[in-house]
């Protein structure tokens, strides 16, 4: 993909982000931060690419360290979001 196509995706995604985030109810702003935290750890893709390359030992160790950090975030972030969301109950359900 050339730079302009990538930039186009990025700019469009910023607009999508803008509208989607404004529609998030303020009561869920803490879970929003927790889940954005988890998904920003999609940076694990880069960490995995680095770890899988056997051509540079230093690079693959840096990648592995990044895999550990991103995994903490992914699993921790989704788990804590799920834990918080499970607590939000409406009056009708009791």
């Amino acid at each position: 993909m050339d730079f302009i196509s990538i930039l186009s995706i990025f700019v469009m995604a910023c607009f999508v982000g803008y509208y989607v985030v404004w529609s998030v109810t303020p009561a869920l702003h803490t879970p929003l931060m927790a889940v954005t935290n988890a998904i920003s750890s999609v940076i694990i893709v880069g960490a995995l690419v680095a770890s899988a390359a056997t051509t540079s030992a230093a690079s693959s160790w840096l990648g592995l360290a990044a895999v550990v950090m991103a995994s903490i975030n992914i699993f921790g972030g989704f788990a804590v979001t799920a834990r918080m969301l499970a607590m939000y109950k409406s009056k009708k359900k009791g």
Binding site: I6, C14, G17, V21, V45, V49
Partner: peptide, 21 residues
Amino acid sequence: TLHNTAMIITGALVGSSGAIL
């Protein structure tokens, strides 16, 4: 850097989310 759409879309979402908050 990686030309990866998942990372770019996510980065834009999270970036705007934090900015709006």
